[in-house]
Design a protein around this nucleic acid. Structure first.
Length: 551
RNA sequence: GCGCCAGUAGCUCAGCAGGAUAGAGCAACAGCCUUCUAAGCUGUGGGUCAGAGGUUCGAAUCCUCUCUGGCGUGCCA
């Protein structure tokens, strides 16, 4: 609708023989206050100086010209020079029909993305333990964003990078070895840096059970390899299973280990040395990342000849470029932002355009339990896992809560609140609206109010402000999805759904939908409810949350 | 020190594609179920949008500085 109004204004300016600015410069927005109409434009305020007219005169001229358009019931000029548009009821009614005709497709705009290829990498947790709450936030966010981009016609691949190589994995293997020995009652020393926690013991116990007889017959090296393979297998599978419980499904699982085995690391090193942007110092090899926006140069190969994690990471990102994506989105945890300049520098040194890359940083998550912050530490093994969270509050509530805040602000996750089944809990509030409408439909059937008898002209019986306001709100939904696809503010969708559910609950309270004595009115209201339900369902689906018909 | 993110009602936060009177929820109090799900609704109070400058016809929103908090700044990933 916004685009349509922009077009109308542009045509209006032409008709008034004024030099019209490009359509992208014409601003149309939702006014804060209802008296200012459904849409408003500040075009004459912006244009006034250029054409040497007062904003008000121009606004009045445009308003008069545009009021003839059947799209609007009224177009007015207001105080400093705003133009306020009131959408004609007829248009509202036809919007309602569109929504119900389109159903699942309402809010989808395949043209916008035009098949452009986007890669979204998210979660990518180290396979050194179960998924934590920040991973969970990333999972919910990345998955929902992917849904939204797909709904806008982008081709999206969801990708998970498994850091199954490097120092952290060595540490993990050591920790498990140690634990195995302990279970075998062999004297062990406490590891200074090792991983702790119940899951380490469980993995060790599992290995002992399945491989116990043979593992001690292997050479130390082979035993370590065996332990590595087994533990990674267990941990990665656990992550996959947890994610699928969370309704997150990845298209690609990329293993760092495999990348390394294919020689990507050597390739990158070779390319880098050709660029002369690396040098030796203190026995290590450094990359001139400071020339490319990083705050200092970085070590890429340690003095012991092993590479730092940057190199395989650059290698990995090069594969993203080689796979021909138009946009590469990385969703990262709060502790990774120092990582971005290094990675960008490396990519740029190798001659790729970093403009294709976008980074979304998620801030940390604090778990509140009985109004107290739960302290967590991965190394100590004290943490709330995604699995526990799902068991506590369920996938729907967890996903919704993670998506309520803007990605770059910290999030407090109140477990008690997420478990509540009342209006305090926004997930239930929204789902309840959906279920309520389903219930109304059941009632209608039992009252023999049949949807087949509906006729478009009945919609004229929707005359109350509440009814028209709801339609106006439904009309904004497609624009909202488009907006989110460019800002990545998924939280706007959760707030929209809360608002819409609120409007509906109020309406429900005030007016009776089904009334045997007024069949036409009942059918019209039922039609409105159906549209509300459609939008709530479509919105929840994008968020990966179920829309129950009974609660 | 440098970099990133944030600072809006007592609390948790929306709003920040510059716009016309700054919004919710929680908490407090008072109400609403012989009627489509009370997992719901109605009403009442509360603000120097951290502070100071600047850009603009117009700033919570953009720019600069200051203050406060979180994180990063490893030959860890």
């Amino acid at each position: 609708m916004i685009d349509i109004i922009k077009e109308k204004i542009w045509l209006g300016l032409k008709a008034l023989k004024l030099k019209a600015p490009p359509k992208s410069k014409i601003n149309v927005e939702y006014p804060k206050h209802k008296i200012h109409g459904d849409y408003a434009s500040n075009i004459s305020l912006n244009l006034a100086k250029k054409i040497r007219q007062t904003p008000m005169t121009l606004a009045k001229k445009l308003a008069t010209h545009l009021s003839a358009d059947p799209l609007f019931s009224e177009v007015t000029a207001a105080k400093p020079g705003f133009i306020n548009f009131h959408i004609a009821n007829k248009i509202l009614y036809s919007t309602l029909q569109d929504i119900n005709k389109l159903g699942l497709k309402y809010g989808i705009n395949y043209e916008r993305g035009a098949g452009k290829r986007i890669l979204i990498e998210f979660v990518s947790a180290n396979p050194t333990g179960p998924l934590n709450v920040v991973n969970a936030r990333a999972a919910a966010f990345g998955d929902s964003l992917a849904n939204i981009m797909i709904a806008q016609g982008y081709y999206v691949e969801r990708e998970y990078y498994i850091n199954d190589a490097g120092h952290q994995i060595d540490l993990l293997v050591e920790s498990i070895e140690n634990e195995l020995n302990r279970l075998d009652e062999i004297q062990v020393e406490e590891l200074q840096e090792g991983y702790k926690g119940k899951y380490i013991t469980e993995i060790a116990a599992h290995i002992l059970e399945t491989e116990g007889a043979t593992i001690h017959q292997l050479s130390k090296r082979d035993a370590a390899q065996k332990i590595r393979d087994c533990s990674l297998d267990i941990l990665i599978n656990d992550q996959k299973n947890t994610l699928s419980l969370f309704k997150v499904c990845f298209d690609n699982w990329i293993s760092e280990n495999e990348l390394r085995q294919k020689g990507s690391v050597e390739d990158v090193l070779a390319y880098l040395s050709e660029t002369e942007k690396i040098y030796d110092k203190d026995g290590a090899v450094w990359m001139c990342s400071s020339e490319f926006g990083d705050s200092k140069d970085r070590v890429i190969m340690r003095s012991d000849g092993t590479v730092t994690y940057i190199i395989p990471d650059i290698a990995y990102h090069i594969t993203k470029y080689k796979r021909g994506f138009d946009r590469i989105i990385d969703i990262l945890g709060p502790d990774h932002h120092g990582h971005i300049p290094k990675l960008k520098a490396g990519i740029e040194i190798l001659g790729y355009k970093t403009s294709l890359m976008q980074f979304i940083l998620l801030q940390h998550v604090t778990i509140l339990m009985n109004e107290e912050k739960v302290k967590m530490s991965k190394r100590e093994g004290k943490l709330i896992t995604l699995r526990q969270l799902i068991e506590e509050v369920g996938t729907d509530a967890a996903r919704f809560f993670f998506l309520m805040r803007k990605s770059n602000t910290p999030l407090d996750f109140d477990i008690e609140l997420a478990k509540k089944r009342s209006s305090e809990n926004p997930v239930y509030y929204v789902q309840y609206a959906h279920a309520r409408i389903a219930s109304i439909e059941r009632k209608a059937r039992s009252e023999r109010i049949r949807v087949q008898d509906f006729k478009p002209e009945y919609l004229q019986r929707l005359v109350h402000d509440e009814e028209l306001d709801i339609i106006r709100m439904l009309m904004k939904y497609p624009e909202l999805i488009t907006h989110i696809s460019s800002t990545y503010d998924v939280n706007l969708l959760t707030s929209y759904l809360i608002d819409l559910a609120g409007e509906f609950h109020k309406y429900y309270q005030k007016y009776k939908i089904i009334n045997k004595r007024y069949k036409e009115l009942s059918l019209a209201r039922l039609f409105l409810c159906k549209a509300v339900q459609t939008v709530i369902r479509n919105g929840l689906t994008l968020l990966g949350i179920s829309a129950p018909t009974k609660m």
